Simulated scan of single mutants.
Amino acid sequence: MTVQIAQGFSLTNRCLLYASYCLAPAQFMSGIQSHNPANLCFLAFNWYTQIRWYQLMSSKKDIHAISLILPHFNFLYSISYVGGITSGSLFLGIPLGLGTAGVMILNTVAAWKAWALHQSPGYGTYRFFFFGWRTLTECWHRELFLPWQILDSVLALGKGK
């Protein structure tokens, strides 16, 4: 079996997505006791990439197996997105914290769209790694990805408080 990848999800968009994840710790570090608004640039970049991701998940395009990575990214984002928390300024910390919570909610909505719309066409075709290579079935969709989505939603709501 071959692993299907998303058609229409350009290499540029994938690079932006991965860069967004990799830059999240830099966002945290640049804001430690800082009054510099550099974190606003990181947050704007995160918003841009997540809006693009949401648009893709909302489209009728064939997303294929890339829809399986959203729960993983959302779990990692819930740990690494801490924009505004380290800011030395309440003036910057509040909008950065609210902006980060908004990005987390947008990520979660996009992941639910991927779960509901784009995973079921891949039953028997999409492959993913979970303690070895597995093929997506209705059972995996319901018993692995659904609880994972629920956990991600709870973590995103906790981040928004």
Rank of each mutant, 00 (worst) to 15 (best):
T2A: 11
A6G: 15
Q7N: 12
G8Y: 04
S10E: 10
L11T: 07
N13Q: 15
R14T: 10
L16D: 04
A19F: 11
S20D: 07
C22G: 13
L23I: 09
A24P: 01
Q27R: 03
S30M: 08
S30F: 10
I32Y: 11
Q33A: 12
Q33C: 07
S34N: 05
H35K: 14
N36W: 11
N39I: 10
N39H: 12
N39Q: 15
F45K: 02
T49M: 03
Q50A: 00
R52W: 02
R52P: 01
W53D: 13
Y54V: 01
L56E: 04
M57G: 04
S58M: 08
S58N: 13
K61E: 14
H64L: 11
H64M: 14
A65N: 12
I66Y: 13
L68D: 00
P71S: 06
P71A: 07
H72V: 15
H72A: 13
F73W: 08
N74D: 14
L76C: 14
Y77Q: 11
I79L: 15
I79F: 12
S80R: 05
Y81D: 09
G83N: 09
S87F: 05
S87K: 07
G88L: 07
P95W: 04
L96F: 06
G97R: 15
G97C: 08
G99Y: 04
G99W: 02
G99Q: 08
G99H: 02
A101W: 01
G102F: 05
V103H: 02
V103A: 15
M104V: 03
I105G: 04
L106P: 01
N107R: 04
T108L: 04
T108C: 11
V109P: 03
V109A: 02
A114W: 03
A114E: 05
A114I: 07
A116C: 07
L117G: 07
S120W: 08
T125H: 11
F130E: 09
F131Y: 15
G132E: 00
G132C: 00
R134D: 09
T135H: 03
L136V: 01
E138A: 13
C139G: 12
C139M: 13
H141T: 02
R142D: 06
E143L: 09
E143A: 07
L144W: 09
L144Q: 00
L144A: 03
L146C: 07
I150N: 10
S153D: 07
V154P: 06
A156C: 03
A156H: 05
K159M: 13
G160F: 09
K161L: 15
K161E: 05
K161H: 08
K161M: 13
